[in-house]
Design a binder for these strands. Structure first.
Lengths: 229, 229
DNA sequence: CACCGACTCGTACATAGTACGAGTCGGTAT
DNA sequence: ATACCGACTCGTACTATGTACGAGTCGGTG
């Protein structure tokens, strides 16, 4: 977790300074920090996508040398983890409302919205470990369901079903929407496919204009199934 | 789709052969082909994970030069696409059964099983375009639901809900299970987290031994919600 | 025999992550 | 003042990667 700070880096620097000028130009930027790195990483990811994030570009944007980053983060994977988690912070009400169902819907829609605001997050999530913010969300969801009267033996399955639904919906949406190729290419590919897969094409068209509604409606079905009868 | 074959590669080779020996050793392997490449790529992915697949390693395993691969595939992304789709082929019954609900469950469990057999596939899916095999599965699912009497307006939402559920469940399972780190590290991380997230930890433990059952049960809930009343 | 198209591959390059260790700087104990 | 330290920065250099380029082989066909 902590960067090199905790490491034993006890090499005494040798003062054979042969030049009198400082080696580094005076910094115009504020000093590096883990937070600045994460914020900038998110900007870069938003702008350029997953492949657009490189340590060099990140350092450039921060006005620092590349290797300076490694004082604050362990490696590039670490940057991904931090960026991902930072994007999933939950700012909603932390206490349980009366209307549990409305509360659940709100939580999950917020979750989905957070991820869609940063489309790279959806494709990153499956590869990375679950960060604290995700776990908080799950924890809160779990508590809400528990008190809602969902049968105790079912709570676990319920949480996971909902989580699965959100994950899947978001990922699907993101990958359908902005696959790496151009808009045009994707469009062409889809219309070519539509000949062979008529039913899919039809649903896609129907859904295309109302992903949000579809999400809410499907979630409704799922909650119907989960509700205590 | 077709590789360089279709390209205009009309450069006439110049025969200034200064050496009489053949440049390439005689091949002991069968000739390259797109299929062999895909099969080997899947082996490599199974054995080493997403990051384990490099063009060089792939060529090594195939006993060919690296650049030979590029005659048969466009680039590495192409390899990923092909490998992913090859793993998702559906071999189940292609006709609609009487028991639509059983049929749906079977289709989705098969789907999930296919992906879990190749854990890299789950993490790859969100980044890649939908291949023909996925679309076939969706098409079949869609037809089944249509004939099952799900209200016409709901079919689309139903398909997507089910798809979302499967995707999410598989991805979650795969990432929870074998995250890139060692087993030990993951275990340690989780127990450390369990102090802060007691409810999650409890569910995780409960689920841990029966992911399959949880999947089936959650799917049951969803189908309950979707069923025509 | 000239020629072609299918296919193979060595070389070379640009770009990536990051190990290493030298450097600066501000503080603190002597 | 001096010696020293720990926090932090960064240039250099190494390795690994995807892939463009173009020369080469080979079998077939006019």
């Amino acid at each position: 977790m902590a960067a090199k700070r905790s490491d034993a880096r006890g090499k005494r620097p040798q003062r054979i300074s042969e030049w009198l000028q400082p080696v580094h130009e005076p910094r115009s930027e504020p000093p590096l920090s883990r937070d600045r790195i994460v914020v900038t990483a998110v900007e870069l990811l938003d702008a350029q996508g997953v492949d657009g994030l490189t340590m060099r570009r990140l350092a450039d944007r921060l006005g620092s040398g590349v290797m300076s980053l490694y004082w604050h983060v362990d490696n590039k994977e670490d940057v991904f983890d931090l960026a991902l988690d930072s994007v999933l912070e939950y700012r909603g009400p932390q206490q349980i409302a009366q209307d549990w169902r409305g509360e659940v819907v709100h939580m999950l829609e917020d979750w989905r919205a957070s991820m869609l605001r940063h489309p790279w997050s959806a494709s990153l999530l499956p590869r990375r470990a679950l960060g604290p913010n995700i776990l908080s969300r799950l924890e809160l969801l779990s508590k809400t369901l528990s008190r809602a009267g969902v049968a105790d033996a079912d709570v676990n399955v319920a949480i996971w079903s909902l989580w699965n639904y959100v994950m899947g919906a978001t990922i699907t949406r993101a990958s359908f929407d902005l696959s790496d190729d151009d808009r045009a290419a994707a469009q062409q590919r889809l219309t070519r496919l539509s000949e062979r897969y008529p039913t899919i094409e039809r649903s896609r068209l129907l859904l295309d204009n109302d992903w949000d509604g579809a999400f809410r409606k499907g979630l409704g079905f799922l909650l119907d199934g989960l509700s205590p009868r």
